[in-house]
Design a protein around this nucleic acid. Structure first.
Length: 432
RNA sequence: UCCGCGGUAGCUCAGUGGUAGAGCGUUCGACUGUUAAUCGAAUGGUCGUAGGUUCGAAUCCUACCCGCGGAG
């Protein structure tokens, strides 16, 4: 039962308080010190710098399997990444509306940043000059950077694809920029990303098979170039062996194309593999079906990262099939847009029914804000367009996602993942 | 009391002869490697009242009511 297990988890940086009884409606709301968004300052010593390496190389330990689900740990010089892991998205060097301290205390081991956005502003060379992305944004744990491949799709109106790469027109000032596999890797090295992604072409679905195949084959050639560029960076000191380059399997929902893509990437012997180009319009069932057919084509002893996914349902079903890493804007974006992910389902805090509801948002959450602020108050903040509403919901959702991953890891460790899933899935996928 | 301006959707206002629109609000929805504190949909008005002119009036005319400003 997750209600119980969520309260019995032992987490390094979290004081777990039992507050489920606080639901008394007439009681005045208390704002206890535990809810401070700035709980403890980051250690000043070595802040933002690479810790003197305990482990110089990147690695992955597969600890246990339960059904198809895997428990593991990615080892990096900046610390371990417990898997299955969810990476909060910090595209422009910030997880929107949250302090890095809150993201850390939520339990995140790694963040995602973005090549395209940071290259345009403030600029990769500038970040390098200032000491790297970790120091810049005060996040000393690992960072994974996306290569800009997703922007090939999301910014399709202002770009052109050639064999060489993607020519973008900046969405900020209209200036022209070329993103090639070589430049993408260079930028990711300048940022100091611990895990770097190959440059790829992500396309929207549905799409013609020929188009899917063309983008997949192009992405394979770009993977080769990305690897050569990354190896050259390691050779010249622009990157270390503690950093890693992941390949991205493409191929839409076409299984033979997915297999062809996976096979070619596996032959390149990369330290990790992502499944890209999913959750781009095909629907949950099709995505899971494609994933089920794709994952077995990847090596067991390397981390598997499902890019850009997803809903709690997506995460649970994907972990059940052996995915180790995720990232998604959903907890933060939907938080800014008024939704709360809770252990009893999805809440639209803008709905009128919350206007006079003094109960907490989620008494099963380990996020202080989920206990402290009433639904009525958060409803008011969202209706008023107040920033604090977005901050509170982003916080609650970020904690929810991490707590979800914690519970999954715990369940795998205790070899009860299927039972856990049967219990939790119907509740977290409900709409309240 | 006189003069002027104005009364159109819950609010602020467009619409000057062909049977009403916008923004905001309200309600609901969407969002999956963030161009997103964003976007979409629905809701909503016998056009101050009563007459008149006209084939046709929110629009022109008359009276009255209400508001604001000015004069006395």
């Amino acid at each position: 039962m997750s209600a119980k297990s969520s309260l019995t988890l032992t987490l390094t940086s979290f004081t777990v308080t039992t507050r489920a009884e606080i639901v008394v409606i007439e009681q005045p709301m208390t704002i206890p010190p535990a809810s401070s968004p700035h709980p403890q300052p980051l250690p000043v010593k070595g802040r933002g710098d690479v810790p003197q390496a305990v482990e110089e190389t990147f690695g992955f330990k597969l600890i246990k399997q339960s059904g198809g689900a895997r428990l593991g740990e990615i080892v990096t010089p900046r610390g371990p990444i417990r898997t299955p892991a969810f990476m909060p998205v910090g595209t422009v060097a910030t997880v929107k509306a949250l302090y890095p301290e809150q993201v850390r205390d939520a339990g995140a081991d790694i963040l995602l940043g973005n090549t395209y956005h940071l290259m345009l502003r403030p600029g990769a060379e500038r970040i390098a000059k200032l000491g790297g992305l970790h120091k810049f944004m005060r996040w000393d744990k690992p960072i994974l950077t996306d290569s800009g491949g997703f922007q090939v799709m999301s910014l399709s109106k202002i770009r052109k694809i050639t064999e060489e790469g993607a020519a973008f027109q900046s969405h900020i000032d209209g200036s022209r920029h070329m993103l090639t596999p070589e430049r993408s890797i260079e930028v990711q090295c300048l940022l100091g990303a611990d895990i770097q992604m190959q440059f790829d072409e992500c396309i929207e679905l549905p799409a013609e098979r020929r188009e899917v195949e063309r983008a997949m084959e192009l992405s394979l050639r770009w993977a080769e170039r990305s690897k050569r560029a990354f190896d050259a960076q390691v050779a010249s000191g622009g990157a270390t062996r503690g950093q890693a380059l992941f390949g991205i399997v493409q191929g839409g929902i076409d299984i033979p194309l997915r297999h062809r893509s996976a096979e070619a990437l596996v032959a390149m012997d990369l330290p990790g593999y992502a499944v890209g180009g999913l959750a781009v319009g095909e629907g949950h069932e099709v995505m899971i079906a494609t994933l089920s057919e794709t994952l077995p084509a990847l090596p067991e002893h390397k981390p598997r990262y499902l890019m850009g996914v997803g809903t709690p349902l997506d995460l649970i079903e994907s972990v059940a099939r052996g995915v180790d890493m995720f990232d998604c804007v959903m907890p933060t974006r939907n938080g800014r847009h008024g939704y709360a992910f809770t252990w009893n389902g999805l809440l639209n805090m803008k709905n009128a029914k919350h206007a006079e509801d003094m109960s907490p948002i989620d008494c099963l959450s380990r996020c202080p804000a989920a206990q402290d602020y009433s639904r009525a108050y958060v409803h008011h903040l969202m209706k008023s367009g107040e920033i604090l509403g977005a901050m509170i919901l982003s916080w609650i959702n970020t904690v929810f996602y991490q707590q979800l991953m914690d519970e999954m890891r715990q369940a795998i460790a205790e070899d009860r993942f299927d039972a856990w899933k049967a219990d939790v899935l119907p509740r977290v996928t409900a709409r309240v």
